[in-house]
Design a binder for these strands. Structure first.
Length: 282
DNA sequence: CTAGGATCCTGTCAGC
DNA sequence: TGCTGACAGGATCCTA
């Protein structure tokens, strides 16, 4: 579930918390969630955190990096003098940890802890030599992010999948990096494009607009602090839905389109729940 | 090569 | 209450 804005929010927030700290121990509660030996990261200090599409890369001071992918339900929850939590919004953000969804626990020398929680176990943390990060299969195959692409290049990339529904194509990280199910729906709504249109029918101007939509909706979400603890739990302790801060269609089925007043409906496209305004999106 | 569907896994919710 | 099926903010693998 975490998409580019959520991962970027984690990158920024977590870096504040763990930069310079030394990992003193690693506890693995689920073997498939931590790929490789934990010994190579114990004793190392955190230098930096990078992001490639939806993947996080934690760089250590011993030439080792940890590639983390949260997939559908991953969360990073830091507990120390300061607290931070981001990723799939759930009560884990404010729960006693570790709990039954905790897959990996990173302990720091000074007593703080970082929990990698992941209900569905699709996500993972994987230590790798820092110099090998760019050669990692997933990272190496990533397309540029929307800010690093011109409309023309995006249009050409869409043309390679002209028979597939445009929504399925923009969810492909080898076509454009960062969009997931929420921001794909939001970007298509922004550009007034129906998600079932074949990618081959998208004009150069529409491709440009869709690219602008991708940038805009993700920037808005990063500004809103993409599903962090701060937005999940309001000051009075009640739950807040951070989608309310920017979503025009996602999760708004049955409500009115803010552009034209028609009802937002939920359909299925390429097996994914899809939210549209049938009047606005052609 | 592309397109489409199954698959990994746990948990929740609607409906009977 | 218990069961069943659908669904879930991702990506890969397999088949045609």
């Amino acid at each position: 579930m975490p998409e580019l804005p959520e991962v970027e929010t984690i990158r920024r927030g977590l870096l504040e918390c763990i930069k310079g700290k030394k990992i003193s121990d690693v506890k693995i509660f689920c073997d498939k969630s931590f790929i490789g030996p934990k010994e190579v990261i114990i004793g190392a200090k955190i230098l930096d955190i990078r992001r490639f599409g939806k993947a996080l890369v934690i760089d250590l001071n011993n030439e080792v990096s940890i590639i983390c992918h949260l997939r559908m339900t991953g969360q990073m929850i830091y507990r120390g003098a300061q607290e931070f939590a981001g990723g799939h919004p759930s009560d884990n953000f404010v729960a006693e940890l570790p709990n039954k969804q905790t897959r990996v626990e990173f302990d720091f020398e000074t007593g703080e802890k970082l929990f990698f929680n992941d209900q569905r176990k699709f996500g993972f943390c994987k230590p790798i030599q820092t110099e090998e990060v760019l050669k990692d299969k997933f990272i190496a195959s990533l397309a540029p992010e929307p800010w690093a692409m011109k409309g023309e290049e995006f249009y050409q990339r869409l043309q390679r999948h002209k028979g597939a529904p445009i929504k399925a194509v923009i969810l492909d990280q080898k076509v454009i990096a960062g969009l997931g199910n929420i921001y794909a729906d939001e970007a298509l709504y922004f550009a007034k494009i129906h998600p079932e249109r074949r990618a081959g029918t998208i004009s150069p101007d529409e491709a440009e607009l869709l690219l602008e939509g991708a940038r805009t909706v993700m920037e808005r979400s990063i500004e809103a602090g993409g599903s962090t603890m701060a937005t999940y739990r309001k000051a009075d302790g009640t739950k807040g839905n951070y989608l309310d801060l920017f979503a025009e269609v996602f999760g708004r089925q049955g409500k009115e389109c803010r552009r034209c007043g028609a009802e937002i409906v939920k359909i299925k496209v390429s097996g994914r729940g899809t939210h549209i305004c049938e009047r606005c999106q052609k």
